[in-house]
Amino acid sequence: MNVAALLLPDFSLILAGWLICRFTPLGREVWHPVERLVYYLLFPVLLFLSIVKSPIEVGPASSLIAAGLLLSCGGIALSWSLPHLPLLGRHIAPRDHAGAAQVAFRFNSYIALALASRLAGEAGSQAVAILIGVCVPLINVAAVWPMARQSESRVLRELARNPLIIATVSGLAFNLAGLALPGWLAPQLQRVGATAVPLGLMAVGAGMQWGQLQSSRVLTAGVLAIRHLLMPLWAWLLARLLGLEPVQAGVLIAFAALPTASSCYVLAVQMGYRGPYVAGLITLSHIVALASLPLALQLLS
């Protein structure tokens, strides 16, 4: 499988955003409204659709659901523990950690769907849809929680009004209730959701400042090591412990090695955190994934 070809469209959009912001009249003042549009409308619609598109059958997929939840919980626990580690913790600023912790356990849903389809066809697409449906609500809550606490906001209020969490919880409830979108509405929402990925990635490029990474090297190394090394190893172990069938095991391991979500940047900016630093982490995550994805897939053998 050509992983570079799979990741090239995302790289291209990040680079396009960077070039447009710096070398055309469409500077930062243009991208702030774009970020708000992506955060409050486009990404929520995309998340809702990604969860409701495939019915979640809890019984047959119980082992995969358990593996996905345990995988996410492991990544969240590792990410949240970084400031408390001996020797390393004192080099990590609490506020920087609150905004960047999400990079370690969130994932690029668009690449997940494309990769699963190439790995195992329709069965792979169904497996990754289940993982997205059960993991996205958990990891979105985990992404917002440290930022809300660090800002000394009312955590439950921040969670209740966060558009990404509202969309994912609504989608999960809609799915489990066995509801279906009306035929006339689904195409309209799909068109709206389809714009989230390109605009979100271009916003990442527009907001990126490589120099920001120099000030938080320990945190950078920590979140990327969790995302691209520890998460795939944890997925491999879970697949063996839970006795997942080959398709489910393959999708879980590939899922664990994905680059992080572009919405990490938009969420950090909208909650008042260091967006350029998070944008740099997202770009590095896509670069590291060029190596981590093939290595993770080698675990299958």
Rank of each mutant, 00 (worst) to 15 (best):
A129S: 15
A129N: 09
A129Q: 04
A129G: 07
A129K: 11
I130V: 15
I132H: 09
G133P: 01
C135R: 08
V136D: 08
V136I: 15
P137H: 03
L138R: 07
L138K: 13
I139A: 03
I139T: 05
A143S: 03
A143V: 07
W145K: 10
P146T: 06
M147V: 02
A148T: 11
A148V: 08
A148N: 11
Q150W: 02
Q150P: 05
Q150S: 10
S151L: 13
S151T: 05
E152C: 09
E152Q: 15
S153C: 10
V155F: 09
E158L: 11
L159K: 08
L159G: 08
R161M: 04
R161W: 12
N162V: 06
P163M: 00
L164H: 14
I166R: 03
I166T: 14
I166W: 05
T168C: 06
T168Q: 03
T168I: 04
S170F: 11
G171R: 04
G171N: 05
L172F: 14
L172I: 12
A173E: 10
A173N: 12
N175A: 15
L176P: 02
L176T: 01
L176I: 00
G178W: 06
G178N: 00
A180P: 02
A180T: 02
P182N: 01
W184C: 02
W184F: 15
W184H: 01
A186Y: 07
A186P: 07
P187L: 00
Q188H: 10
L189I: 07
Q190W: 03
Q190A: 05
R191M: 15
A194K: 05
T195P: 09
T195M: 12
V197L: 14
V197M: 13
